[in-house]
Write a protein that binds this DNA or RNA. Structure first.
Lengths: 142, 142
DNA sequence: CGATCGGATGTTATATCATAACATCTATCT
DNA sequence: AGATAGATGTTATGATATAACATCCGATCG
């Protein structure tokens, strides 16, 4: 299932595995923390691995969190949509073809040629919205 | 036209004016640079002013640039769409009601309750796309 | 084989973005 | 006067990201 266009290096594989295992966004420094003692001691190595993984479409960068997640369905679409719960930190990758088409249409209608489209929704996931029955939201996230 | 729900302080007004005059995204430190010598000497003041302006819907934060722009049509929508040219740095704020509705629909369909929706397109504006007739793209942006 | 090249990594230093924590000041309301 | 809310100042630090340059290693080719 997991199609890898290019072979991944040791570090790249480790980073991807860590992100997959986490199942949530990790910052470059979160990853660096987990890789210390495995011969990775400085930010550039992590950022370079992430850069490669993003190029390959295996990892997404979530701009509003300054963090990275393993792509749930590696496909290299240059289009990612995320719903980010500000309460519990849950991040869900959504796929919505019509939305992508509409974005592309809006984009080209204005003469803009999009190479990357980011959609990030902030709010509360179903579970947290249910819990918050009116009593104040005491945001956490992270 | 410009509806201000709350009166703005001196600093807040200056920041908004600087952003409006710039007509492009400025970082908090860009603003700080312009405000030194006007009694503003430290980041927190700028960030606090920006925070207020964003709350009021007068300024948007562009996540993928870590920068701020004056809202082209102050309305407090919690929804912003930007097309960012990676070549010349031009940032255009787009409004597309159907897109907003579709996003809201997709969001609620999955039980997610969105309080903020961010859409950022990266690519080339019409002018730059026209210029780049095949000869290599030598990205600039900033 | 030895040369060369691309890709990955190491290493050091620094740039850039953002906030914590605490003090002060002023306007307004009571 | 006392209380409150909002804005700001000030110092320090935390968090994120990259520049610049050196090295290493495996593949390819003459």
């Amino acid at each position: 299932m997991t199609v890898r266009r290019q072979p991944l290096s040791q570090t790249q594989t480790r980073v991807l595995d860590l992100l997959s295992a986490a199942g949530r966004p990790l910052s470059a420094y979160d990853l660096l923390g987990k890789l210390r003692g495995e011969g990775v001691n400085a930010p550039p190595t992590v950022y370079r691995a992430l850069e490669k993984l993003v190029r390959e479409g295996l990892v997404h960068r979530i701009e509003s969190l300054n963090a990275f997640v393993a792509c749930s369905t590696p496909h290299h679409h240059d289009m990612a949509t995320f719903a980010i719960c500000d309460q519990c930190g849950l991040v869900t990758e959504l796929t919505d073809r019509p939305l992508q088409e509409q974005l592309a249409a809006m984009s080209s209608r204005s003469g803009f040629h999009a190479t990357r489209m980011m959609v990030e929704l902030r709010g509360h996931c179903a579970a947290c919205a249910a819990k918050a029955h009116g009593h104040g939201a005491s945001d956490h996230a992270h």
